[in-house]
């Protein structure tokens, strides 16, 4: 059942300041807060370990300045980690030559940026085709591929616009098209929707989920917005001051926070938004009349209207469509109003 690990990052440090490497060895690879402060060194990422599995949406969540961007840049080697080990599809990312790295980035990685990072002198079409242009793909082929991507992100008709003629949401769609045009396996998104208005943000999140249901990429998604994290994530890593506090599913994070910081963070999150039917159902399916079937991976919040509106309970089914339990309106409402009997 466990899917293979695509990106394996162990004990990664990124320090800014004078002679960070030497500083790290001097403190046996584990300097304390005090050591950092005494040496005027910023610990942007501290001893971070994450395993990213094929096809999952892995969200890194934390307040501004907690080191999310630095971590994701270490994972793509835009930033050279001070210490640690990163393996991508089994090979050592940090020891790759420039040439190998260029190859990996061209074929296997895509990235979306917070402020879109579009090239101002290129049209939408040319921006979307840019990664292929860099690879030397001929014009016809790359523009055809770019047109497909533009269609997928819903910008057909705007191919000849320049970035400055588009709204923020549209610009980010171009950014997404560009990051996907070379068909990468691993997709990084650094706060892709943070620069957008709340309404647009919501729309883009739906769009993102729709895309992922089509494309099945392995995704590392950065956000500072916990609601966004729980909406999108299969698993979440919570960061604070450069350290990863806890890595878990949204549900676990809310139900079993590992540190006071995570608890503080998750306290105001309505449980119905994270609890899956799978974990609140009554196991076993006795003979009775049912209103229908619901996927166990749905959250209570997403299913409540259906459950509450029906005269009978629902069957809960797993990924293969086998019924594994039942849920009725009362159980669901208990979760909604926090009257949970665990």
């Amino acid at each position: 059942m466990e899917r293979p690990v695509i990106l394996d990052c162990r004990g990664v440090w990124k320090l800014y300041g004078q002679n960070p490497r030497e500083f790290l060895t001097r403190h046996n690879g584990a300097p304390s807060d005090q050591d950092l402060a005494d040496n005027r060194i910023i610990g942007a990422v501290r001893d971070a370990s994450v395993k990213i599995r094929k096809g999952e949406i892995f969200v890194i969540m934390g307040l501004s300045g907690s080191g999310k961007s630095t971590l994701v840049r270490c994972l793509s080697r835009l930033v050279e980690p001070t210490a640690g080990e990163i393996r991508f599809e089994g090979s050592d990312l940090l020891s790759m030559s420039d040439e190998e790295l260029i190859h990996v980035r061209r074929k296997k990685m895509g990235m979306v940026f917070q402020h879109f990072a579009l090239l101002p002198h290129l049209t939408v079409l040319q921006n979307a085709a840019f990664p292929l242009d860099v690879q030397g793909v001929d014009r016809r082929t790359r523009e055809e591929k770019a047109r497909q991507m533009i269609e997928i992100v819903g910008l057909t008709g705007r191919e000849d616009y320049y970035p400055r003629q588009l709204s923020g949401g549209q610009q980010q769609r171009v950014g997404i098209a560009r990051s996907l045009v070379a068909d990468p396996d691993l997709w990084f998104l650094d706060e892709p929707f943070s620069a957008l208005d709340p309404l647009i943000r919501r729309e883009m999140q739906d769009e993102f989920l729709r895309l992922q249901s089509m494309l099945h990429k392995t995704i590392v998604f950065i956000t500072h917005d916990f609601e966004e994290a729980i909406r999108l994530a299969d698993r979440i890593a919570v960061m604070k001051d450069g350290r990863i506090e806890q890595t878990a599913t949204p549900e676990e994070l809310v139900l079993r926070p590992a540190t006071p910081y995570v608890e503080e963070f998750t306290r105001h999150i309505p449980r119905a938004k994270v609890m899956k039917l799978r974990s609140v159902m009554s196991p076993g399916v006795p003979e009775a009349s049912y209103a229908g079937e619901l996927a166990g991976s749905l959250t209570v919040d997403a299913a409540i209207e259906q459950i509450d509106g029906a005269a009978h309970p629902f069957k809960v089914v797993d990924e293969e469509g086998t019924a594994i339990g039942t849920i009725d309106a009362r159980a669901a409402i208990d979760v909604m109003i926090g009257r949970i009997s665990a």
Partner: peptide, 13 residues
């Protein structure tokens, strides 16, 4: 902008 340069790196320039 730094991000634009990073975008360049990420597409494998």
């Amino acid at each position: 902008p730094e991000e634009v340069i990073e975008a360049g790196h990420m597409v494998g320039c």
